[in-house]
Amino acid sequence: MWDRPSYCSQGAYGPWRAVDRLLCLLDQESVPATFFIPAWVVEHWPAQCRRIVSAGHEVGHHGYRHEKYWDWG
């Protein structure tokens, strides 16, 4: 996986590993956070997104699917 850095940025690492690790760390340190989440991620990993909200963190909208604005038009 580490020889393919794009793998970690394409929605494969975050929902399965990073969310739980981040939530644990934020809880240990009593730090509130804002997670900017694309709608596509919410559709595909609703349980993970619910855990973020249930833990008391804020969620901000981050587009639908990390659209590349330079491709529009």
Score class of each variant (00 low, 15 high):
His57Lys: 02
Leu23Ser: 07
Ala47Gln: 08
Ser9Gly: 12
Ala12Met: 11
Leu23Cys: 06
Thr34Leu: 10
Val31Glu: 00
His61Asp: 09
Arg51Met: 04
Leu26His: 01
Gly14Asp: 07
Arg4His: 04
Glu29Tyr: 03
Arg4Asn: 11
Leu25Arg: 06
Asp27Arg: 08
Trp45Lys: 00
Cys24Gly: 03
Ser9Lys: 06
Asp3Gln: 06
Tyr7Gly: 03
Trp40Met: 12
Gln48Met: 13
Thr34Val: 14
Ala47Ser: 14
Leu23Asp: 00
Pro38Phe: 03
Leu23Phe: 04
Gln48Gly: 11
Arg21Cys: 14
Gly56Met: 02
Tyr64Pro: 15
Cys49Gly: 12
Phe35Gln: 00
Tyr13Ala: 08
Val19Gln: 00
Gln48Leu: 09
Ala18Ser: 06
Glu67Lys: 09
Cys8Pro: 07
Gly63Ile: 13
Val53Cys: 11
Trp70Ala: 10
Gly14Lys: 02
Gln48Phe: 11
His62Asn: 07
Pro46Thr: 02
Trp40Ala: 07
Glu58Asn: 08
Leu23Gly: 01
His57Tyr: 10
Pro5His: 01
Gln10Ser: 15
Ser6Ile: 13
Ser54Leu: 02
Arg21Glu: 04
Leu22Thr: 08
Gly56Thr: 02
Lys68Ser: 14
Ile52Gln: 01
Trp45Thr: 03
Gly11Thr: 08
Glu58Met: 08
Ala47Glu: 14
Gly56Ser: 02
Gly60Gln: 10
His61Phe: 15
Tyr69Asp: 10
Glu58His: 06
Tyr69Phe: 15
Gln48Ala: 13
Arg4Ser: 10
Val42Met: 14
Ser30Leu: 15
Pro32Phe: 01
Tyr69Gly: 11
Phe35His: 00
Leu25Phe: 08
Val59Met: 13
